[in-house]
């Protein structure tokens, strides 16, 4: 799907997720400085850029956990409301995976995955646990269903966290540096789960420092710097023939020739 992406992107009618002139400041520091970008259905979009460039802040603002100061996020044609009770209805349609996993330590892997549907969608416990089991199997952790997070490796915890996000049957998955807190040897297992999700045609927004993953899996790459979009395009353009000098420098720093 990667090769056809620019064409598909151009042909699409309506973005699933639209950011319109969003901005956010921490004191005088402009974390996000008037960003307008689109995410289209079925697309895997990677946000890359140096630390403090605003990519994580943009992702976290998407579901209103860390709201923007201004501008609009439009999800499936719906302007993201400001009121906490209204934003909840939109939030459940977006899955989120955190850098530090944030599994619930007092619940087993299975319970972690089942709790969303049980509390938010009022799914019957038995049904939710059955679905949770299937999702754990999907991320290769069926045998760890009864383990508590403390007894799982970082990579396993993050896979459970992905299953937990999937349990809500979200229309978009937001990944906030999903492998940054992992030991090098467990990064691969998380990336391959994400690759499998991408291959299913899921819409995914991924903040990442894994350049080879972005090159391989993304349909569209957006490069951030100082709260602005430096450059965006299909991965082959960004990684092989960046048009902006700063993109070249950034990739060069990471050892990307």
């Amino acid at each position: 799907m990667t090769d056809a992406s620019p064409i598909r992107r151009a042909a699409r009618q309506r973005p699933l997720l639209e950011y319109k002139h969003v901005h956010k400041a921490f004191g005088v520091f402009k974390a996000i400085d008037d960003i307008s970008i689109n995410i289209y259905p079925g697309e895997v979009v990677c946000f890359i850029g140096p630390s403090g460039s605003g990519k994580s802040t943009l992702l976290r603002g998407t579901n209103g956990l860390d709201p923007f100061d201004g501008g609009e996020v439009i999800f499936d044609g719906l302007v993201l409301p400001r009121k906490p009770s209204d934003v909840r209805k939109v939030r459940r349609r977006m899955g989120m995976v955190f850098q530090n996993f944030e599994l619930f330590p007092h619940k087993t892997a299975l319970q972690n995955v089942a709790i969303g549907p049980i509390t938010v969608l009022n799914t019957a416990k038995a049904e939710a646990e059955q679905q949770a089991m299937a999702l754990l199997a999907k991320v290769g952790l069926a045998d760890k269903a009864d383990n508590y997070p403390v007894n799982l490796s970082g990579g396993q915890q993050q896979r459970v966290a992905i299953a937990r996000a999937l349990a809500m049957q979200p229309e978009v998955l937001l990944f906030d540096e999903p492998t940054s807190a992992l030991d090098p040897e467990t990064i691969g297992e998380v990336l391959s789960v994400m690759k499998a999700l991408a291959d299913e045609g899921r819409t995914m927004v991924i903040v990442t420092h894994e350049m080879s993953f972005a090159r391989r899996v993304a349909d569209w790459v957006i490069v951030f710097e100082r709260g602005k979009v430096l450059e965006e395009g299909p991965p082959e353009q960004i990684f092989e023939a960046p048009t902006v000098e700063r993109t070249k420098e950034f990739l060069g720093h990471l050892g990307w020739a």
Binding site: R88, M96, F98, L103, F104, H106
Partner: peptide
């Protein structure tokens, strides 16, 4: 705070986050 965010991200209300996530951990 990340625990609260994880609950909210699933679509839970503040009350549900308190009841399902914060209080059981706080109790221990």
């Amino acid at each position: 705070a990340g625990q609260t965010n994880a609950g909210l991200a699933l679509g839970m209300s503040q009350f549900q986050v308190m009841k399902e996530i914060i209080l059981p951990q706080a109790a221990r």
